[in-house]
């Protein structure tokens, strides 16, 4: 426990900052959404645009998260388990989506896969597939923007954990897959979960890159963040804040989920410690 008044003051200041910077805006989102009563909220929530936006957002996240989960694990495995030329380069390249503005990423995809480009035209002619201004393009840019999260969380952890436990598993007769499943995965699961939470949060909330490639077709290519922007421009404040509240609620639920999972794990370890003297 802190003993001096200035220690208490520092703690108080921290709480104050959290309240002003994080909690207050969050409270305001919900109070704005409900400013004209619950029925208006319900109306807004059940509007076709809103439902389509929710669906689209979830679809984008549902595809992005597993793709980047697998990609992130493979990449982290590759970088931490093998020695090869260009390993450093690869770890640097992973950070491109972090360093680049999402809008630029969106534009790049537009240039490469859009209707004017060679690739885009070829896809359209041979497969009749349009990537840009449609769901595939939105998923592609979201995957791009969120791809470093899982790998970035895993790489330092897997580096510090080393490979001895996996080697021990192999020497005990485990196949590579068994070693990953029974040894590596349990060691990295909390970091992995954290990476997934981050990826999901970013995938659901991504605005810049998606707005470039979405084409902003109402009821078709609007995700929740894009809808918020649209509603706000239409002076539909309640609608905008309802959608914003939905996003915020989603974020809070993921946070809660993560905390509960962590708490349960710690509880398990503590219980095991109590059993033995």
């Amino acid at each position: 426990m802190p003993r001096h008044w200035h220690q208490w003051a520092l703690i108080l200041a921290a709480f104050g900052a959290v309240a002003v910077l994080l909690v207050l805006p969050l409270v305001l989102i919900f109070s704005q959404a409900f400013s004209q009563g619950a029925t208006v909220v319900a109306e807004n929530l059940t509007s076709t645009d809103m439902i389509s936006a929710i669906k689209l957002t979830l679809i984008v996240a549902l595809v992005t998260v597993p793709v980047n989960l697998v990609f992130g694990v493979l990449l982290a495995w590759c970088v931490t388990r093998y020695e090869f030329r260009g390993r450093k380069l690869l770890t640097t390249l992973i950070d491109i989506p972090f360093a680049m503005s999402p809008v630029v990423a969106g534009l790049c995809y537009l240039v490469v896969y859009g209707g004017q480009s060679v690739v885009g035209q070829w896809l359209d002619d041979t497969l009749g597939l349009q990537l840009m201004f449609a769901l595939p393009g939105m998923i592609m840019v979201t995957v791009f923007v969120t791809c470093p999260y899982v790998a970035r969380v895993l790489i330092p952890l897997m580096q510090s954990q080393g490979t001895e436990e996996e080697e021990a598993a192999i020497l005990l007769g485990a196949s590579g897959w068994q070693a990953f499943w029974y040894v590596t995965l349990p060691k990295i699961r909390w970091a992995l979960l954290y990476g997934v939470v981050l990826t999901n949060a970013r995938a659901v909330g991504e605005f810049g890159a998606v707005s470039v490639v979405s084409g902003l077709i109402r009821g078709e290519t609007l995700t929740l963040p894009l809808l918020i922007q649209m509603l706000n421009e239409d002076y539909n404040t309640v609608g905008a804040f309802t959608a914003a509240g939905l996003l915020a609620a989603l974020a809070l639920i993921t946070l809660l989920l993560k905390t509960v999972l962590e708490w349960r794990q710690r509880h398990k370890i503590d219980a095991a410690q109590e059993v033995t003297p």
Binding site: E164, E165, E167, A168, A169, L171, V183, P186, K187
Partner: peptide, 11 residues
């Protein structure tokens, strides 16, 4: 095989 740092499965 016994590793120097034992390499027990921590979980």
């Amino acid at each position: 095989f016994v590793f120097q740092q034992y390499a027990l499965f921590r979980h």
